[in-house]
Simulated assay, not measured.
Amino acid sequence: MEKLKRMPKGTNRTKKACLWLVACGILSLQILLPWQAHAAEAGVTWKKVTQGINEQNQYVYDGNKTDGTMSSRVLEKTSAGIWGYIDRGIVKNTDSILTPNGGGWWHVVNGWVDTSSGVYSTTDGAFEFVDGKLDFMANQTVASYRSQRRYLLDGKVDGAYTGLGTDENGIYWIAQGTVDESYTNVVKDTIGLTNSAGWLCIKKGVFDADADTIAKNENGWWKIRNGLVDFSYNGLAKNENGWFYVQGGKVNFSYNGVAQNENGIWYVANGKVDLGYNGHAYGYYFTGGKVQ
């Protein structure tokens, strides 16, 4: 029998090299295939689907496809230039409601956005709207609602608030969400209306910026200048009840003596000028409370 021919030297080495290259190729293919599949997935294109309201006041998407399940959405009826509230695929005839879409929160009445501006009542409360859109910037301010000036917090009438509020026309005292036109007092500035967080003279619910008088609160009687308590004031000052002796901006009802202003020297009893006093006191002679 013919002997098998011996393979030349180096053939086994060459064979092993070939096997190694084949194995590497298979491994590379296994790695590449998932990557190529992923790359194919990443290449998927998306189509923007239109949404709106058709002539039959139905919800439509992608041109003219209807969906009877679509709810709680505010969309445009392009042909009419108006916006409607979709519920179960059609424009729903609603009460006055507040409802959102991607552009904000809207006032909807009878199924359509009401583009009026002002404060309107909804099933969720009363809100400030500008062209039908909720005005979140109406914050710690006052707006007219049902013949009253009401306090707004983040665009909503806050019926629980008591304190100061403001708008472009002035500063007000609010009681349970409404400007209290019967309120007269000297109150602390708690919302940063003044530079020094001072005390304001409120008269009939409104800050009286022109007030130059003496006014009271539960802490005493105070000298008011330009509507604010003037803690630097010392001397005589008046209101509709007469002239009083003031120290550090506050009437000192314990003071008995004399006090002077540009009109003369006066007799003071218990902090008030006594215009009925006649006689000698403190080294002076008084007639009608004034030194003669």
Rank of each mutant, 00 (worst) to 15 (best):
M1Q: 08
E2V: 11
K3T: 01
L4R: 09
K5N: 12
M7A: 14
T11Y: 08
V22W: 01
A23E: 06
G25P: 02
S28A: 15
Q30S: 15
I31A: 06
I31Y: 08
H38W: 15
H38A: 15
A39N: 12
A42P: 06
G43Q: 15
V44R: 13
T45N: 08
W46I: 11
W46S: 12
K47A: 11
K48N: 15
E55I: 05
E55G: 12
Q56M: 09
Q58L: 05
V60T: 08
V60M: 04
Y61P: 10
S72Q: 13
S72A: 13
Y85M: 03
Y85V: 02
D87N: 15
I90Y: 14
L98Y: 06
P100R: 01
G103T: 03
W106V: 00
V108Y: 02
W112Y: 03
D114P: 05
S117R: 04
S117C: 05
Y120P: 00
Y120W: 05
S121T: 04
T123D: 06
T123W: 02
T123E: 05
G125I: 02
G125E: 03
E128N: 15
L134K: 12
M137E: 14
A138K: 11
T141N: 03
V142Y: 08
S144Q: 14
S144R: 12
S147V: 07
R150S: 09
L153T: 15
G155R: 06
K156T: 10
Y161V: 07
Y161K: 10
I171R: 12
Q176R: 14
G177A: 07
E181C: 08
D189T: 10
D189P: 09
D189C: 08
T190R: 10
I191W: 05
G192P: 08
T194V: 06
S196V: 10
K203I: 12
K204L: 12
G205A: 01
D208Q: 01
D212C: 11
D212T: 14
T213Y: 00
I214F: 03
A215E: 11
A215Y: 14
K216H: 10
N219P: 06
K223Q: 14
I224Q: 08
R225G: 07
S232E: 10
L236E: 00
A237M: 08
K238G: 13
N241P: 06
W243F: 14
F244I: 01
F244H: 05
F244E: 02
F244N: 03
G249N: 01
G249I: 01
S254P: 07
G257N: 04
Q260N: 03
N261T: 08
N261S: 13
I265A: 02
Y267S: 04
N270T: 09
K272S: 13
K272G: 08
V273Y: 07
G279R: 12
G279D: 10
A281F: 06
A281K: 10
Y282K: 08
G288D: 11
K290H: 07
Q292M: 03
